[in-house]
Simulated scan of single mutants.
Amino acid sequence: MARICSIRGTRVRSGGKIHRSGLAKKKGGIGRHVTKVVKRTVSPNLQTKRIWVPELNRFVRVKLSCRALKTVNKNGAYVTLKAAGLV
Rank of each mutant, 00 (worst) to 15 (best):
R58N: 03
G16Q: 14
T71V: 05
L23W: 13
C66P: 00
I7S: 04
E55T: 01
W52A: 07
W52I: 07
G85F: 01
V38C: 09
K74P: 00
L64T: 14
L56E: 13
N45Y: 06
V79Q: 12
G22P: 10
G85L: 07
H19K: 15
R32Y: 02
T35W: 05
T48E: 13
A83D: 10
K70F: 03
V38W: 10
L46Y: 09
K74L: 12
R20C: 09
L81N: 01
V72I: 10
S65W: 06
W52Q: 10
K82W: 00
A83W: 06
R3G: 04
G28D: 01
N45K: 07
V37L: 10
V37T: 15
K26L: 07
R20D: 04
C5A: 07
N75F: 14
K25S: 09
L46N: 01
R20Q: 15
H19C: 10
V42L: 12
S65V: 03
A68T: 03
K17T: 14
K25L: 11
V87F: 06
Q47K: 13
S65A: 10
V79M: 03
T10W: 10
G31S: 03
T10H: 10
G15Y: 01
G85Q: 05
W52K: 11
G76P: 01
K74V: 00
T71F: 02
V37S: 09
T48A: 12
R8F: 13
K74W: 07
S21T: 13
V72G: 04
I4W: 05
C66E: 09
F59E: 14
R58K: 14
V53T: 03
M1E: 12
L69P: 00
I51V: 15
R11F: 10
V37D: 09
A84Q: 02
K49Y: 07
I51Q: 08
V79H: 08
L23S: 11
N73E: 14
A77M: 08
K25Y: 03
L56M: 07
Q47A: 08
S21R: 15
L64M: 15
C5E: 05
K17V: 15
P44T: 06
R61A: 12
K36E: 15
I30S: 13
K27V: 02
V12S: 04
A83N: 12
V34G: 02
K26F: 10
V34I: 14
G31E: 02
G22Q: 08
R58T: 08
T41C: 09
V37I: 15
I4H: 08
R11L: 10
A2M: 02
T10S: 10
K49S: 06
V53R: 07
E55M: 04
L86E: 08
P44L: 07
N75D: 11
A77C: 01
K26W: 13
K63D: 11
C66N: 12
T48N: 08
R3W: 11
V38Q: 15
V79W: 04
K25D: 04
A77D: 02
K49V: 15
V42M: 09
N73T: 03
Y78R: 04
R32N: 04
Y78I: 03
N57W: 00
V79T: 11
N73S: 07
K82D: 02
